[in-house]
Write a protein that binds this DNA or RNA. Structure first.
Lengths: 130, 130
DNA sequence: CCTAAACCTTACCATGGTAGTAAGGTCAAG
DNA sequence: CTTGACCTTACTACCATGGTAAGGTTTAGG
């Protein structure tokens, strides 16, 4: 399979497949005589794994670890679970931060009449007058 | 005031003040004979406004609009409120997405024993076996 | 008055993950 | 054999921020 086919079958763009190879997330693949990268079904499987992990918000570093564990038939599931729970914690922290921002902005918006007059507690808040 | 003093007083780094000037968020300021940027208290006020808006997650484009409205004494508060509510909507969307990811990862983690054995529904999920 | 420290200037590079472009080589179908 | 679809590498850009380096300026102390 050439890179375009793999891209279509895995949902990872050819661009990103080359990038993942460059950065060591996936190994260098074999080449045809003319220099084309050649892939097989196992590569498609791996790239799908990577795409799903990306979709779940795992960073490249974490995905690298997950891939290593995935390919190690003797891994203890403890290690995988630790990575997942760590990710959940980070997501929780991100969520909490966004909710906090959201509430502040929403509160300020609630104070503002939103009419033709210039008085605006939102701008007052941003300018430090509250 | 030199840029360092303004940075200390506003909470915006000298680096970012120059960047904001480059990108047109704030106007070019006057210079001393030797080329140093010179600021006054009003500039500190403006930069504090910008920092607070950044802290609330507003994008640079939105902040540019907020600054314009802030400096327009006759703006209708309606326009400001619209920007704020729009930002709340975007934050809500971001939060919903993160919560969705969080729940998927957390669910997979809950299925995994997390012990010395290699069986791991997290990896199975990522590899598409679920 | 001289020197050293603290400050300023511009112009680079890096981040992370992705997309775009350009210039050129290869392959397959008609 | 031509044409179009595909591949290659190498570059740029995004966004907001931080870092560095090489050099000029100002200020305070001896």
């Amino acid at each position: 399979m050439n890179i375009g086919t793999v891209a279509d079958n895995s949902g990872v763009s050819a661009k990103m497949i080359r990038y993942y190879e460059d950065t060591g997330l996936i190994p260098h693949t074999r080449r045809s005589d003319s220099g084309y990268r050649k892939y097989d079904q196992a590569d498609v499987h791996t790239l799908r794994f990577i795409r799903r992990a990306r979709d779940l918000g795992f960073s490249m570093d974490r995905i690298k670890e997950l891939l290593r564990l995935w390919q190690d038939r003797t891994r203890p599931s403890r290690e995988v679970k630790a990575i997942a729970l760590n990710h959940v914690s980070e997501l929780d922290a991100d969520i909490a931060k966004l909710i906090s921002l959201r509430n502040v902005v929403s509160h300020l918006a609630g104070l503002c009449h939103g009419d033709d007059h210039p008085e605006c507690p939102i701008l007052d808040g941003l300018s430090g007058e509250i």
